[in-house]
Structure formats: C-alpha cells, structure tokens
Amino acid sequence: MTTLFDPIQVGDLQLANRIVMAPLTRNRALPGNIPGPLTVEYYRQRATAGLIVAEASPISPTAQGYLDTPGIWSDAQVQAWQQVTQAVHAEGGKIVLQLWHVGRISHTSLLPDGEQPVSSTNQTAKASTFTRDGFVPVSAPRALRDDEIPGLINDYRRAARNAIAAGFDGVEIHAANTYLIEQFLRDSVNDRTGPYGGSIENRTRLLLEVVDAVVGEIGAGRTGIRLSPMTTFTAPLDSNPQALYGHVVEKLAPIGLAYLHVIEGETGGTRTPEGKAFDYEALHKAFKGTWMVNNGYKKELATSVLASGQADLIAFGRLFISNPDLVRRLREGAEFNALQADKLYGGGAAGYTDYPTLA
C-alpha cells in the first residue's frame, strides 16, 4: 500500500517521499525581483519535502502581476536563485521552479514604463492585485497580437533555460488559476478569432506551444504542468470544462512530462464547488503519468488517495507555510503550527522563516 513516505521516480527526478510543497507566492523579493537571504532560509527549512515547487516566478518583466515576486529572466535573478537551490540540495531536497505569466492579472504600476497588461482579450478582469499601494483593481489589458506570440513562447523557453542554470531540478509551467495560459484556454475569457481563439483546439494551441518550447529546451522529464479546471479565481469557468481539459490532457499525455499537477475544486476554497461536478479521474486515466493533486489535503485524505491509486503525489500549501518540518509532523501525527494569515504577503522573517519546528 503506497504511503506519503514512500520514494518515487518522477520523470528524471528521484523523490524521497510523496509530499510536495506547493508553489506559494510570498511577495518578499528584493529590488530587481531577486530572492534574498530570507528566501534561501525559507526553502532550506522545508527541504524535507519530496519535492518543492518554488513560488511562481515571472518569465519576463511584462509577465509580473504582483509586487515583489522573484523573476527568472535576468542574470542577477539566476545567480540569486542559485543560493536557494544550493541550500535545498545541501539538505537532500529537490526543487523545481514554477514559470509564470499573469496575463491580465496585473497593474500598470508593476510593468515597465507603465505598459498595459496583455491577455487573450482586452476585457478587464474583475480582480485585484498587490501593489505598493496595497490591493488595487487590476488594469485594463490589451489582447496580444498573433505575431507577438512567438516572442512570448521564447520568453518561456529562456525562463526554463535560466531555471536549469539556477540549479533547479526542473520547472512547472503555470497553466492554472486563470493566469495567461488559462486566459487563452477558457472561452469565458478568450474572445479572439484566428489560430488562438474559437475552438478548443485553437484555445489549447498556446499551452501546447509553450510546453513544446520548454520540453525542447530542458527535456520532458524535468517539465511539469499545473491545471485548475474548476477554479474561478479571477474568471468564470469555461462553458465545457470537461471537454476542454480532457482535450488538454489528451494532448499532453504522449509528451512524457514529469508530472501533471491538478488543483481539485476552487483554488484556496472548497474541493467540491456546489453544483459544479467535474470528473478528475477521467483526466487521470487519460494521462497515465505521475499525477499530483492539490487543495485542502490533510493526512487522512492524502493517505486514502495514495493508497487507492487516485494520485501519486500530494501537494500541501498553507500547511507548509506554518510548518517547515511538515514531513515529520505528518509522519508522527504531531500538531500543526497556527498560520499567521496577516503575514502571508510581504514583510520580513515574521510569518516566513520564524515558524518553530518540533526540534
């Protein structure tokens, strides 16, 4: 019977256990969008996870949507991330970086020369983002031109190359939580015509071209992807999520990705949104590779899902924020530290690197 503490081969990576630290935005980057010494310590403390998926990191200056998020487009960022990966590897851990483009979930104050955010559409999202002035409504986007998309794809390619240069064991393509790639996937947002709009096949095109570019750069065995079929974080659901994400997984299945990471239900919310059924197991059966699940997992549910073969990896989010030694606490059935919710975004060591361990 598979347990949380069994090792597993995931693509090119051998993991010590099935416990994954989910990507978690903490807004503590230094000027230049670089991770600093506190970030090094934060990830070092959590290196007993079988795998750390480091926080979402913008692939270019125009991909940023939140204040003080560490990027992966510059040499300085690569050098700073090297301190993080070296610290995690010194503790015996594995770490991949989540590649991020927020699309329309941004603000002109965060972008070079006050540029507009870009998206599949020019419709403004009903959402807020985190700036120097706190949380403010997002800015109106402009729709990317088709002739700009090759440059966007090249940004993903460069970011993947930079991640490996920074010492990461791989990358996770962020195609979830209604950010740029999902803004192309969903017909609730994507109102364009041409090769990237209209049919499910066309709306899936950007995602598959990004995957092809990243895999071509660093290999399928070091590439994962994250999806969120039922999340309405900043956008309505697609008109037919089962058909859309079924098509996505069907196209991803033959590529041989390291894993597919699925958020079950509403990101940060209920696992089973009322009146919104979705068959995740159908996607799992179609993919056949390493299957990672996320959202509200506790030890009992995680143990059951692994034992039944419904998943291979379990990603934990907020529990890893407040419990740097989460793996030990899960193993021993120990109590968890309380989360300091008012210190999630921005700040210093408080609520970041000062949570106590059992030791």
Rank of each mutant, 00 (worst) to 15 (best):
D6V: 09
I8T: 06
I8D: 10
G11E: 14
L13A: 00
A16Y: 02
N17E: 08
R18I: 15
R18W: 14
V20S: 05
M21P: 01
M21N: 01
A22L: 01
L24H: 09
R26L: 01
R28F: 12
R28W: 12
A29E: 04
V40T: 15
V40G: 04
Y43F: 13
Q45S: 10
T48F: 05
A54P: 03
A63P: 01
Q64P: 00
G71I: 05
W73C: 09
Q79T: 13
A80Y: 08
Q82C: 06
Q83E: 14
A87L: 09
E91L: 02
G92W: 00
K94E: 13
L97G: 10
Q98I: 08
L99I: 00
H101S: 05
G103S: 09
R104H: 07
Q116D: 13
V118M: 10
S119F: 06
S119G: 03
T121M: 06
S128M: 14
T129I: 14
T131G: 08
D133T: 07
D133K: 15
V136M: 10
V138P: 02
V138T: 08
A143T: 03
A143P: 04
L144Y: 15
R145E: 03
P150M: 12
P150Y: 12
G151I: 08
I153D: 00
I153S: 06
D155Q: 12
Y156R: 11
R157L: 13
A163M: 00
I164V: 15
A165Y: 03
A166W: 06
G167P: 09
F168D: 00
F168I: 13
V171A: 03
E172Q: 12
A176Y: 05
N177A: 09
E182R: 03
E182H: 00
E182V: 00
N190E: 10
D191H: 15
D191Y: 05
R192W: 09
T193P: 04
G197N: 04
S199Y: 10
E201W: 00
N202S: 14
R205A: 13
V214D: 10
V215S: 05
V215Y: 01
G216N: 11
T223N: 07
G224T: 12
G224Y: 05
L227T: 02
S228K: 00
T231W: 08
T234D: 12
D238S: 07
L244Y: 04
H247L: 07
E250I: 02
L252N: 01
A253M: 07
I255W: 01
I263H: 02
T267P: 04
G269W: 03
R271M: 14
T272E: 09
E274N: 12
F278D: 04
Y280V: 06
Y280G: 04
A282Q: 14
L283A: 07
A286V: 02
T290M: 03
T290N: 12
M292A: 15
K299M: 07
T303C: 11
T303I: 12
V305C: 08
L306W: 06
A307M: 12
G309F: 09
Q310L: 07
Q310V: 08
A311I: 06
I314R: 01
G317V: 04
I321C: 06
N323M: 11
V327A: 12
V327L: 04
R328N: 07
R329A: 10
R329W: 06
L330V: 11
L330N: 05
G333E: 01
K343N: 14
Y345I: 03
Y345W: 03
G347E: 06
G348P: 09
L358I: 15
